[in-house]
Write a protein that binds this DNA or RNA. Sequence first.
RNA 1: GCUGCUGUAGCUCAGAGGUAGAGCACUCCCUUGGUAAGGGAGAGGUCGAGAGUUCGAUUCUCUCCAGCAGCACCA
Length: 648
Amino acid sequence: MAQISLTFPDGNAREYAAGVTPAEVAADISTSLAKKAISATVNGAHWDMQWPIDADASVAIHTMKDDAQALELIRHDCAHIMARAVQEIWPDVKVTIGPVIKDGWYYDFDREEPFTPEDLGAIEKKMKEIINRRDAVTTETWDRDRAVKFYEANNEPYKVELIEAIPGNEPIRMYWHGHWQDLCRGPHLQHTGQVPADAFKLMNVAGAYWRGDSDRQMLQRIYGVAFKNKEDLKKHLHMLEEAAKRDHRKLGREMDLFHMQEEAPGQIFWHPNGWRVFTTLQDYMRRKQNAGGYVEVNTPQVVDRKLWEASGHWEKYQENMFIVEVDEEHAREKAINALKPMNCPCHVEIFKQGLKSYRDLPLRMAEFGSCNRYEPSGALHGIMRVRGFTQDDAHIFCTEDQIESETKEFIAFLSAVYKDLGFETFKVKFSDRPETRAGSDEVWDRAEAALLAATRAAGIEPELNPGEGAFYGPKLEFVLTDAIGRDWQCGTHQVDFVLPERLDANYIGEDGAKHRPVMLHRALLGSFERFIGILIEEHAGKFPFWLAPRQVVVASIISDADPFVHEVVAELKAAGVLAEADVRNEKINYKVREHSVGKVPVILAIGQKEVEERTVTVRRLGEKQTSVVTLDAIVEELGQAAKAPDLA
RNA sequence: GCUGCUGUAGCUCAGAGGUAGAGCACUCCCUUGGUAAGGGAGAGGUCGAGAGUUCGAUUCUCUCCAGCAGCACCA
């Protein structure tokens, strides 16, 4: 047997026979390490304690102290233990896949009966039993045919399909947790007792399509979370409770921002408070856009199907469009129209009015475009995913050479705006060609290359989102997260070689000939609705002062102070502050509580003393202590704070 | 759209085969109180919609609508 040399993190090396396992290495080092070890890293790969090492390698043995590896293994073993528990309780249930995800894992099962919340309790109990059995985890690499036959014999058709999908050069790894068996790429813990029995929890059950394909069988997915100890689990559950308090749907009601109702699913009734946020944000965006060299336009809501046919939407997007058919009796001629789901075709129509010269490019055409899309009912979510929304949309008509500079400028623009709105960091995803698409592969090659090059030139290496591009072009997505960590695409930047072609847009080049412009679809906020939803959750309802729908309440302590309260309110209003008086017959405690709950950033209290001294007592949201300031000083300060960041 | 769950007062929620309850909010009265709920009284509901079973349904069954979680979708 050949000798190999293993190098440890401290730089020391030892010789072993080829094929030695980390378990043997750990035992060689010390019996306590052998017991505590959970896995190893071998040449950078996460390695099961039982996998042989065949050549010289760097090796690190992990224990529960190594968070990354420990959590991955705990969660992965939890997935197996849960699947085993389910099959011990209901032997007929078929198992499929069970990966580790953020904070935990899930496992998909095929079972006729739905799992109930009581079932989850029973499964948890069984899991604890299995953990306490401390069954050894063992693994073997099998021949493909043998594995297929094994699963066919065991009536596990999903596993057969999974094996068939594993590339030919990859090993088929079989794992056993005691007698229970699963196909798995590993690694795993050494025995089930290494999973903390009090640090996991099954969270919920939901349907999920087999292999993510909506044409296939719907399975039942059970989600769980797992941590290294009980305290971490408790912290996680507490964090979820706190996040629920930031839910924009809850805060939207509490702060009287908007409501939604059955008669208009997926559409928003903006209340005065919410609309104030909307218009303040819109005014800000308009100023930023004007400063950024955009021209603003506005286009029709209801547009004849002919334009949608020409643009390709009728073919590719019709099921998401609200179709408007006018009854023949009431119309001179029967026409089929659609509510616009996007602004792009209309913008091309504006571009096409009159001859355009290369001197006009890049032409940045913006619209606060009100769009309607018939989104699937299950996709609707508060004000984040709706059927009627307003985009901060623009289309940049430019030459292929200008893509890079326009993209860079856009990314800088977006970063500045996000920063003003309280987002220092955000994810950038690059989505390439989807299966259903318009345009030739050659055009897609160019569009993808151009966008990627421009993004990298702007100093960003985006995360790849394969196959997620729009039907007409690849896109960059600027992603923000909500209170419980769900991703939402907000900003977007897309290259489109297709639409100008389809709608026959052109400009006269330097050479006097007609040329096709490239179109860049871009939005910073994405939609005002979604972005405001994110803003609410990000700030937990405590908007930056300039964006807050209610900025100051001036509250009287005694009714003799009322005249001065009204004077203060008038002065604040004159300084551009949203101020309101609260002279109700209530105690100051009551008023402070109510306006604190209502997330009003500043409460000014006025009693006998303030009237005499022409001062106010300032209490800021989230702070307990108060300060006394002169009327002039507070008007000056809040007048300044009420200005949008681009005006301050 | 799919799977599961939910729908009772403005909000949060309780309840039962015999046509409904609490707290907060609201209205009125008393209280002028110094920084997160002062006291009292009152008003408020086609129990999501429709059909069925029943002597009787808000409660049981079915269909539909909407919401929630996840999946699929997402220009």
